[in-house]
Each structure stands twice: as structure tokens, then as C-alpha cells.
Write a protein that binds this DNA or RNA. Structure first.
Lengths: 134, 134
DNA sequence: TAGAAAGTTCGAGTTACACGAAGTCAAGTG
DNA sequence: CACTTGACTTCGTGTAACTCGAACTTTCTA
């Protein structure tokens, strides 16, 4: 399967600008057709998945560049260890994000319930003061 | 309890710059002492918690400004409904974030295992091709 | 063959801070 | 009392990662 910029962007829910940006800075591989247009294949898809996940972990573009650089070097023991270490760290961030997101969701649940109590005429503020309600 | 900028920033794990920025754009309330220095109290703490969570949901500064604006208006039925709606939407984002973070964590788990297999001499690439490994 | 659609590069704009400069002010030290 | 220290102030520029628009070229479709 091969894809145009447009198809590829839609596939990952990002703008075409972003896709071009990633290819320009060298973290997303693509081929070119006779008219110099970007062409994306399965390899591009795999890399884009990786980029998306690393970004999801909180990695910066520079972090991702560094990982890409390592992936293009010969696969020495040292190199693989370096890649592994990056992935370990990023995985840790991912788990941290789950916890943070859960805490945020809990807070929002409380807020939502607070408003629903008010609409029900309970006026819970008399019992418990919650932030951000005026 | 009252806090200086420094104490308050440390409390929430942000820089003093960020705290000042929030007060300057009017989303974080604070008092001033005789020397015109910012003084934070429990109300500030509550607002900062709310801001942190809204940001965690993905709300922009402008979104937060809008919510703050509503909180400073008289508490009409309409106003409360508007605030409620914002919180409902943001809660949805929070739950979406949990799912996304879980998916990312799973991907990273696979990558980490992939590398561990290689170190163990399995060379799993012969069986399964994973992205971002060169 | 004309015109729309989709692509190209390039450069400026945006968000949410991050940081440094220059100055104020109160407390502690010699 | 002068001086340093340190935390604070405002103001203004810098940064990351896009985001958008302009101006142009190429390819597809009627």
C-alpha cells in the first residue's frame, strides 16, 4: 500500500502540514514520485506509529530525532542498549500519564457531580467547598 | 495558609514564571502585600488545582479564561449550565486521555519486550516486524 | 485545452510558556 | 549606616512544534 500526503495525514488524524514537517526534519521516511511528490509506504506507517507513541509519552522532536539517528546507525550492542534505554524511559512516562489522566478524570467527575447536585437542588456547597465553582 | 510565589510554584511543580503568568492573565487569583508582592491563599490553591486539571484535559488558556469569566458572573441557571457543559466536555477528554495513554503504554511495552528478546538472543524480528527498530 | 485539485517550497504567525535584564524592596551582616 | 543578598517586580525577547498562507508547479478530469 502507498499513500499520498493527504491520505497519510487523514490516516493518523494530523494535518498535511504536520506530515510534511516530519518528513522535512527527517524523522518520517518517504519516497518521491516523478513529480517530486511525497509517497508513503508501510515503512512510513510504522515510523509514524512510533513517532505518535513517542510523542504520546512526552518525547520532544529532538528526542525522537535522536532515536531515529540511532536506528540508522549499525546495530551494535551499544546502539541497541541506547535505544532500549530510551524506550524504557518513555514507557515509564506513558505509565505516569495513565495515572495523571486518571487523577484528572476523577477531579472532573467530582466537578460534574457537583453541578448535577446543584441542578437537583441539593446545593452541595453547603456541605463541601469545591474549587472553581465561583 | 498563605504562600509566596516561590512556595506556590514548588507546591504545584511549575516555575515561578508560570505562576506569575497565570496571575497576569487573570486566571489565578492572588492578593498583594505592602510591597506589591503576590500572596497566595487557599482560594488560589483551589483555582490552581482546577487550572491544572483543565490543562490536563487539554483545555487551552483561552478555554480556561472563558470558564473563569463564567465563574465571576452571577450564578444564573444559564451560567451554571454553561459551566457544567464545559466540565462535561473536559471530562470526556480526560477519559479519552486515559485510553490513549493506555494504548501508548501497550506499544511501549511491546517495544521494550522486543529489545529484551534481542538481548536474550531471540532476534524476534524473524518472527514479527516491529516499527522503529531500524 | 482549460481549469480544478493536489502537490511543492518558503516564510511568517501562534500558543504557552521560558528566560534574562533591569530595577525595587526588606532583612541580615560588619 | 552602608552593603550585600535574595526574592520580588515589570517588560520584552526567545523557543517548540506546529499552523497557516502565499505563490508557484504539476497532474487529473471534463
Amino acid at each position: 500500500m502507498i499513500y499520498t500526503v493527504q491520505q497519510f495525514a487523514k490516516m493518523f488524524g494530523v494535518t498535511e502540514h504536520t506530515v510534511r514537517y516530519y518528513t522535512d526534519i527527517g524523522i518520517l521516511p518517504c519516497l518521491r514520485d516523478e513529480g517530486n511528490r511525497r509517497v508513503f509506504n508501510e515503512e512510513s506507517v510504522n515510523w509514524m506509529q512510533g513517532i505518535t507513541c513517542l510523542k504520546g509519552c512526552g518525547a520532544s522532536i529532538d528526542d525522537i530525532k535522536e532515536y531515529c539517528r540511532l536506528c540508522h546507525l549499525p546495530e551494535s550492542e551499544e546502539n541497541m542498549r541506547a535505544r532500549y534505554k530510551i524506550m524504557l524511559n518513555q514507557r515509564e512516562q506513558a505509565y505516569r500519564h495513565i495515572d495523571e489522566a486518571k487523577a484528572v478524570a476523577k477531579y472532573m467527575d467530582d466537578k460534574v457531580k457537583h453541578y448535577e447536585d446543584i441542578f437537583r437542588g441539593k446545593n452541595s456547597r453547603r456541605h463541601k467547598s469545591l474549587p472553581l465553582d465561583g
